[in-house]
Computed example of a mutant assay.
Amino acid sequence: MPALPDHTRIYVSTMGKAVRVTAIFANDNAANAHLALNPDEGVISEIGDVIFIANVNDLGVDLPHVPSAR
């Protein structure tokens, strides 16, 4: 799945923030081709062969602090 439609909301959690994913790719070549045409986007996460892209200017939304169970 390349670029996501505006009404689709997928987020990646990183460093206490939720950052919106703008595109998802199944391989490096497709992701790199997209990034070459969209310099304001970058890789936010990879899970297996799946590559998640986000806008580099997206500072994310603070997530509530959940204390860890110890």
Rank of each mutant, 00 (worst) to 15 (best):
M1I: 08
M1K: 11
P2W: 02
P2G: 15
P2H: 08
P2L: 07
P2S: 13
P2K: 11
A3D: 03
L4H: 08
L4F: 00
L4D: 00
L4P: 02
P5R: 14
D6C: 06
D6S: 15
D6W: 00
H7N: 06
H7F: 13
T8L: 11
T8A: 10
R9L: 14
R9P: 00
R9C: 10
Y11Q: 08
Y11V: 09
Y11I: 03
V12T: 04
V12R: 00
V12M: 08
S13G: 10
S13A: 15
S13K: 15
T14V: 10
T14H: 01
T14A: 11
T14R: 01
T14W: 00
G16I: 05
G16Y: 03
G16R: 05
G16W: 03
K17F: 09
K17C: 09
K17M: 15
K17W: 10
A18N: 10
R20N: 11
R20I: 10
R20Q: 15
V21H: 07
T22K: 15
T22S: 15
T22N: 09
A23H: 04
I24Q: 09
I24N: 02
F25S: 01
A26M: 12
A26C: 09
A26H: 09
D28S: 08
D28C: 07
N29R: 12
N29A: 15
N29T: 10
A30T: 04
A30Y: 07
A31K: 04
A31I: 02
A31W: 06
A31M: 04
N32L: 10
A33H: 08
H34G: 00
H34E: 03
H34C: 08
L35D: 06
L35A: 05
L35Q: 06
L35P: 03
A36F: 08
L37D: 12
L37M: 12
N38V: 05
P39F: 05
P39C: 09
P39E: 05
D40K: 10
D40E: 13
D40A: 13
E41M: 09
E41C: 04
E41G: 00
E41I: 02
E41N: 06
G42M: 12
V43T: 10
V43E: 05
I44F: 00
I44M: 04
S45V: 01
S45R: 08
S45E: 07
S45K: 07
E46S: 10
E46M: 12
E46F: 04
I47S: 12
I47H: 14
I47A: 14
G48T: 04
D49L: 08
D49N: 15
D49Q: 14
V50K: 14
V50C: 07
V50L: 14
I51H: 01
F52Y: 09
F52V: 01
I53D: 11
I53V: 15
I53C: 07
I53M: 12
I53R: 00
I53A: 09
N55K: 07
N55Y: 08
V56E: 11
V56H: 12
N57I: 01
L59S: 12
L59F: 12
G60K: 04
G60P: 07
G60I: 00
D62R: 01
D62Q: 11
D62Y: 10
D62K: 02
L63W: 06
P64K: 04
P64D: 14
P64M: 05
H65S: 04
H65W: 01
H65D: 11
H65E: 08
H65A: 06
V66N: 13
V66P: 06
P67L: 10
S68C: 03
S68L: 06
A69N: 02
A69I: 05
A69S: 02
R70C: 06
R70H: 10
